[in-house]
Amino acid sequence: MTGKDLYLGVDAGSVSINLVLIDSRYRLIEKLYLRTQGRPIEVLKEGLENLSQLIGPGFKIKGCGTTGSGRLLASALLSADIVKNEITAHGTAVLNFIPEASTILEIGGQDSKIILLRNGVVSDFAMNTVCAAGTGSFLDRQASRLGIAIEDFGSLSLKSTSPVRIAGRCAVFAESDMIHKQQMGCSAEDIIKGLCDALVRNYLNNVGKGKDIQPLIVFQGGVAANIGIKKAFEEALGQRIIVPDNFEVMGAIGAAILAHRKAKATGSTSFSGLASLKKDFTTKSYECHDCPNLCEIVEIRVGSKVKAKWGDRCGKWSSSIESLNKEKELNEGVPSA
């Protein structure tokens, strides 16, 4: 298998950073699902080290794509070929593996989305609005309240005989409702099933409001691991729900597919290599006082070289990088990556 071309996809999300390697026929070669734990750069570094050990020598990474809420950061560190939003990435992955799918339900840590696919393209989508009710963090929070590991949540909910009704509009409401039901003596299984139903109800009323949910329905994202939620969706929609094999890394797979297409179109890659993160990366954030907007600027440096800046509304810092780096190269004679 030596000399094989691979494509790297990175989904830098709020809860996990997912890395995948696919080949040019979009077969999954490796996948890693790592908890972000609030330190995306370190986790990404560890992940890449793991990956390079897993695949060994002889493989060549010919393209890299990033997605997720940390996609800019990941792209700055890796010099990705393509940076794409999560909707396009998830849509691309599903259209490739399950072309007959019409609806994607995706629930992640902070975001939940619904994507409608028609005639082979994304035809409509919606994301949760200002609050995180109906997402993975809601479940995480309630599981820890009940003292139950999130991994056991789904199987426990299946044991419920008469689910209780929990107010699901808001995590705070749900919590007080849940405590009342506990005090009344309801069983943990019934409460957990009630929570699953509440989350699904909330998702369908908010994110899925007014959307035409047609079969085939695909459920993915970290929460798809929870069999209780899958069952609650099946009951609420009266449809069979498919959870794909690699449900937790579908966004990363989509990013890798998009990277392959981009690399094929341009005939080259800007990816800086798996070893690139061995360099010393530092990040710094500060408030820009040049105008009353007081934007929070983030700066990523490799050694003394400023690699990326963002967060400015006016664009003067983010667009200054190219010219700045050229200037630095001239002054210091640093060859370009």
Partner: peptide, 18 residues
């Protein structure tokens, strides 16, 4: 801006894709 930009970018992608 991240959440806002994600939605806007996804919307533009969807338009172009369609």
């Amino acid at each position: 801006h991240a959440g806002f930009d994600t939605r806007l970018e996804a919307f533009i992608d969807m338009m172009e894709w369609r």
